[in-house]
Design a protein around this nucleic acid. Structure first.
Lengths: 229, 229
DNA sequence: CCTGCTTCTTGAACATGTTCAAGAAGCAGG
DNA sequence: CCTGCTTCTTGAACATGTTCAAGAAGCAGG
């Protein structure tokens, strides 16, 4: 897959065009009729190529979804720039980033369930924890790093260093909630964000209290240990 | 499915026998070769029935997994009785319950990934949050209620009321970690449990500190609100 | 033991993701 | 413009979950 993305060697301009065509057709059909109801045959027919050809570029139906996920990442990163260069308030920055993820992903809400499904399998390259999705994951964590760094938040250095990753985990939790949320206008997920973010902010500021500090230090220790082992 | 479980009307003794035969054969094959590599044809052949017959009792391959999940729940509940009637220490009770879940599930570790996969899809009846798995979920939460109630933990009443559900969520998190854990002897998951439980205990005891109390109250409020909306 | 109704069982047929051998198209070196 | 190599494309064939019409087996009421 990676070599095919290198435009320099191998891939023809024509080839790249076919690849794009297949992907955009697939994404459109996913959006229109959902992942489950979109067959590989339908994608191929609609794109005017053969099934085998689709498999030449994307080694499975899931990989077409992987591509969608990457697509979303890019959109999110763009959508978030304005917020990150604006306010200094930690809660506003975090809320903004989480909300804009929601906005970007909204058109895909229904079929995101299926994405999550395949993503949850550990061996799957689509898993958010897998080696293959490392780039996307790190790009995501990078956003949260910016959230923290550009903010007015005062924190002990070691907690501050782990925080972006923890916020990314928090987002994973919100995504999980979102996937299951069928309230109108995603009311419940929005409520989750608006009520959780200030709490996180307050919890983080609690770390100044001596009694709390010890526990937080240990927590950071546990995280580091688990990452190391 | 529910009606078929009612032995009173409908189902024959013979029928029940076939049902059991299919399930036990399926579970054995899942364990021996994993979920993905076990075909419905193989299950049917091995059990000495036709494919169609397997579908008469279990409406999909996933439902065979659902049955496995129920099976695990029962085992866990049994395994946990001794611990719950013994020690009063909260950390010991919680550690014991989590560890015994690990023991019970160990033989299924490899194929549990696939279970998680199908379970993560929101519409799936296998989802831990679905209506269909409510009985299993509540049975699980009930275990954590016993963990809390029989323990020496002193907590504000409202937090204490929400705690079993929160501990269940914590277990879901551990399960997610476990599914991705390929360290030898599940070293990492065990480490996660032994290091997280005391932290949880300390965090909970922190709720006596005035500054912390307010945040916790709000947290409980958020949880209640989300459950209600 | 007949009759009619329910429960159970069968295996072929279907749907759909995936593979593969064959060849077409593109292109660089001569 | 040939030759040989790489890239691309095809569609039939395969694997496997699932459905379905047909009928067999069981059983209660007469």
């Amino acid at each position: 897959m990676t070599t095919l993305t290198d435009v320099t060697d191998g891939a023809t301009a024509k080839g790249e065009q076919t690849r794009e065509l297949i992907l955009s057709t697939a994404l459109r059909l996913f959006r229109e009729q959902g992942y489950g109801k979109t067959t590989m045959r339908a994608i191929a027919t609609e794109a005017g190529v053969s099934v085998g050809n689709a498999y030449y570029y994307y080694s499975s139906k899931e990989h077409l979804m992987q591509a969608y996920y990457d697509h979303l990442q890019v959109l999110h990163r763009e959508a978030v720039q304005e917020i990150l260069s604006g306010d200094k308030s930690f809660t506003k920055r975090l809320t903004g980033v989480l909300r804009s993820w929601l906005d970007v992903s909204e058109p895909y809400h229904e079929f995101a369930g299926t994405f999550f499904k395949t993503a949850a399998e550990p061996k799957s390259p689509l898993s958010p924890f897998s080696e293959e999705s490392r780039p996307a994951r790190e790009a995501s964590i990078e956003i949260f790093r910016q959230v923290v760094e550009g903010s007015d938040l005062k924190l002990p250095a070691d907690l501050r260093a782990e925080l972006p990753e923890l916020l990314w985990l928090m987002q994973m939790g919100i995504v999980l909630f979102w996937v299951h949320d069928d309230s109108s206008g995603l009311r419940r997920t929005k409520l989750l964000i608006t009520s959780t973010v200030p709490l996180v902010d307050r919890l983080l500021r609690l770390t100044r209290i001596p009694g709390v500090k010890g526990v937080v230090n240990d927590l950071v220790g546990v995280i580091r240990q688990l990452k190391g082992v």
